[in-house]
Design a protein around this nucleic acid. Structure first.
Lengths: 214, 214
DNA sequence: TAGATTGTTAATCGATTAACAATC
DNA sequence: TAGATTGTTAATCGATTAACAATC
């Protein structure tokens, strides 16, 4: 029975399912039961079945799940089977690292262009992706609005750049600035990668274990 | 009443509290009530009070919280007031981006060294941080074990590099490889930054909103 | 003092786990 | 067929929210 509203907790687990299924598929494993997958992932079989049931019925009694099929289904749920367009805004060290190393295509994205204020970069390409002047953003998106923008600009211009992207009609912002972006009433999705928050939780945990040992 | 075991949900919210308190402190705001902070952060006052009560009593009836004091307390809980040592393992684009731009010091870390296999990098420095040959890792850590390692190596060598770090006695690994690291029975904390998972959840959400609009 | 706001206990809500009939 | 395993309903557990006495 498909669910109307899927909880955030379930959504956050989907990429991990996809990762495991992808790995099993690569290994050539044909089928897996929820309990075997659960053992492997360190979660309960119940949770896997409950999670998947939000989106449909993908298994077979007495058999389990066909890995190729389930991988495709989860991929479909996540949207990796439909190509979305993407631009990278801010070609500093981080933007460059993503352009060079991140496999956007595997996630269902085509990188169309990058933007920066640095005129030394403008006109060059990275992995075949042209870098345009940030000033040209509106002119560029006027033609065709990309689905998602990767925001890798300095903190100081994060919100204003986000505002411009939203004005252009962008649908999603993958935000690497350590800034809490806001968009009153706008129909845009933010996904934040807060490095600082991540490292702080690690600090919390090692502080605890270090103290515990003494 | 201090809690023995604080839930993951609470811990994940702490850095965000710290971020807001830091901003308010910078602005020179002296005090704030849980309801005012809740409004600002988009959460309930109850949750803030409940969360903080896991660690002690930091407020005052009829007054609220002194921002400078609460900021310091939350910082202390997160461990930013005690300096931990850190090394960066893998000086590719991402490692370099972190070395150049990330404010480790604000998070309570001192970057001591970086390691890479590329001999062209070995002997150079980034922001004053020396880059050593990865082969020297054991020799380097023999003297004094750093608290945390940032793992920014290629996926293919992620687990083996993690194993070496763990063998050296490292306490925490900030993992940027898209690999699920394991350490059977070892006393090491992992904090994963899974770019792919993050972008996939964004894809999920924009796929939903796009479909919804049609 | 009166008003405001805490810390904490109780109530509610949601998410996870267990159980099991259905069925491959 | 018998065994295995699903999808789903029910039970449990934990997290969030509400309420309120305590008190600054």
């Amino acid at each position: 029975m498909k669910k109307e509203n899927v909880s955030e907790a379930v959504i956050r687990r989907l990429p991990r399912y996809y990762r495991y299924l992808d790995e099993l598929y690569d290994k050539g494993v044909v089928r897996i039961s929820s309990s075997a997958l659960g053992d492997r992932m360190g979660i309960t079989a119940s949770q896997i079945r409950q999670d998947l049931s939000c989106f449909g019925e993908f298994g077979q009694q007495g058999y389990g799940y066909n890995i190729q099929e389930l991988r495709r289904e989860v991929g479909h749920i996540l949207g990796v089977d439909k190509t979305h367009s993407l631009i990278v805004v801010g070609v500093g060290n981080l933007g460059r690292a993503l352009l060079k190393n991140f496999h956007f295509a595997n996630m269902g994205f085509t990188v169309e262009a990058a933007f920066d204020v640095d005129l030394r970069l403008v006109g060059t390409t990275i992995k075949g992706i042209p870098i345009y002047e940030l000033r040209q953003l509106e002119a560029y998106t006027h033609r065709k609005v990309p689905d998602v923008a990767v925001l890798t600009v300095p903190q100081s211009v994060a919100q204003e750049t986000a505002d411009r992207l939203i004005a252009c009609g962008i649908r999603g912002i993958w935000n690497f600035t350590n800034v809490e972006l806001t968009a009153e009433g706008e129909d845009v999705q933010f996904e934040n990668v807060h490095f600082a928050d991540s490292l702080l939780t690690l600090n919390y945990r090692i502080t605890r274990t270090l103290a515990q040992d003494t």
